[in-house]
C-alpha cells in the first residue's frame, strides 16, 4: 500500500465525507432495488389484470410509481413531502408543516421542562447526601421502565383530569428528557477536582459562589452532551405520545393514520420528516454548544 500520490480522489476517500457519500449512494441504490423487489408481485398482478404485455423496464417503472407500494421509491417520498410541505397551506390538515409544528411544539416544551427538572435534580443530588442515596438508584431504575409503552395511559389519565392537547405529550417528553440531563449534570457538577475546590475554599467562597464560579461552568460540556441526547428522545416521546390520541395531529398521528389506511407513502414522508427534524435539532444543539463554548472563552 505505497500510496505516494495524493490525487483529489484519494484525499476525498481518506476523510469522512467521501465514504459517507458513497455509502449514502449505495443506500439509495439498495432502496430503489428493494422497491423493485418488494413491489414486483403487486405490479405483476396489476399487469396481469390489465392484460398488458410487460418487459423488465415496464416492471421497474411500474414498481417505482405505485399508489400504495410496500416500499415507496425515494423520489415518491420526496414528491409527497414536497406536495405536503411546500404546496399545501400550512393551516391545512394535510400539511406536514402543520403536523410537524404540532410535534415540534410538544417536543420543545417537554425538552425545556425535562432539562429544568434534570438540572434541579442534579443540583439537589450533588448537594444533599440523602437525596443522592435515596433518589439516584430510582432515577436509574426509572429508565428500565419502558415509559414509551406507558404513554397511552399517561395521555388518557391526564385527559381524564382535563389536560388535553399539548401538555400530556410534553409530560412524556419531559420524563424521557430529564434522565440524560440529570446524569450528565451530576457527573459535570462533580467534575471539578479537589485542587480547584480547595482553591475556592482558600478564597473562602460560599457554597453558592463555588457553584456559580466553579461547578456550573465545569458542568456545561456535560450538560450539552446530555441535552443532545435529550432533544432527540424528546422528539421520539412526542411522536409516540401522539399515537393514542386517535390520530388527530402530529407526525405520530400521520404514521398511525397512514398505517390504518395503508398509505405507505404518507408513512414514509412522515418518517423522513421526523428524521430530518431530529437531525436538525441535534445540529442546532451542537451549534448552541459551540457558541456557548466560544462565549466562555474556549479556543477552537
Amino acid at each position: 500500500m505505497a500510496a505516494a500520490k495524493t490525487t483529489p480522489i484519494t484525499r476525498l476517500l481518506a476523510g469522512h465525507a467521501g465514504p459517507v457519500a458513497v455509502l449514502g449512494l449505495a443506500f439509495l441504490g439498495l432502496w430503489y432495488a428493494g422497491a423493485v423487489w418488494l413491489n414486483a408481485d403487486l405490479q405483476i398482478d396489476a399487469f396481469a389484470r390489465a392484460g398488458t404485455d410487460w418487459g423488465f423496464s415496464d416492471l421497474v417503472a411500474g414498481t417505482w410509481a405505485q399508489e400504495r407500494p410496500l416500499l415507496p421509491a425515494p423520489h415518491q417520498v420526496l414528491a409527497e413531502m414536497w406536495k405536503t410541505i411546500a404546496e399545501t397551506g400550512i393551516t391545512s390538515k394535510r400539511s406536514l408543516v402543520f403536523h410537524g409544528w404540532v410535534t415540534l411544539s410538544s417536543t420543545l416544551l417537554g425538552f425545556a421542562a425535562g432539562t429544568l427538572l434534570g438540572i434541579l435534580l442534579a443540583v439537589g443530588i450533588v448537594h444533599v447526601r440523602v437525596l443522592e442515596k435515596s433518589l439516584m438508584p430510582w432515577i436509574i431504575a426509572s429508565q428500565t421502565i419502558p415509559i414509551l409503552a406507558v404513554a397511552p395511559m399517561v395521555i388518557v389519565v391526564l385527559g381524564a383530569i382535563g389536560l388535553k392537547g399539548l401538555i400530556p405529550k410534553a409530560v412524556i417528553s419531559t420524563y424521557l428528557c430529564f434522565f440524560p440531563v440529570a446524569i450528565g449534570m451530576v457527573k459535570g457538577l462533580r467534575a471539578p477536582d479537589l485542587l480547584q475546590l480547595d482553591l475556592m475554599w482558600t478564597y473562602s467562597a460560599s457554597a453558592r459562589q463555588t457553584f456559580f464560579y466553579l461547578r456550573w461552568p465545569t458542568a456545561l460540556p456535560f450538560l450539552f452532551a446530555g441535552l443532545k441526547v435529550a432533544i432527540s428522545i424528546s422528539l421520539v416521546g412526542a411522536i409516540i405520545a401522539e399515537l393514542p390520541t386517535g390520530a388527530q395531529a402530529g407526525l405520530g398521528a400521520r404514521l398511525l393514520a397512514g398505517s390504518y389506511y395503508g398509505q405507505t407513502i404518507q408513512i414514509w414522508s412522515a418518517l423522513v420528516t421526523a428524521a430530518l427534524m431530529a437531525a436538525l435539532l441535534v445540529a442546532l444543539m451542537g451549534g448552541i454548544e459551540r457558541q456557548v463554548a466560544r462565549l466562555m472563552g474556549a479556543r477552537p
Partner: peptide, 17 residues
C-alpha cells in the same frame, strides 16, 4: 469511516417510527 457518522446520525433518529 463511512458507517460511523451514519450510525451516529441513526441513533439520534426516531427509529420506532
Amino acid at each position: 469511516r463511512g458507517l460511523l457518522p451514519l450510525g451516529n446520525l441513526a441513533s439520534a433518529l426516531p427509529i420506532v417510527g
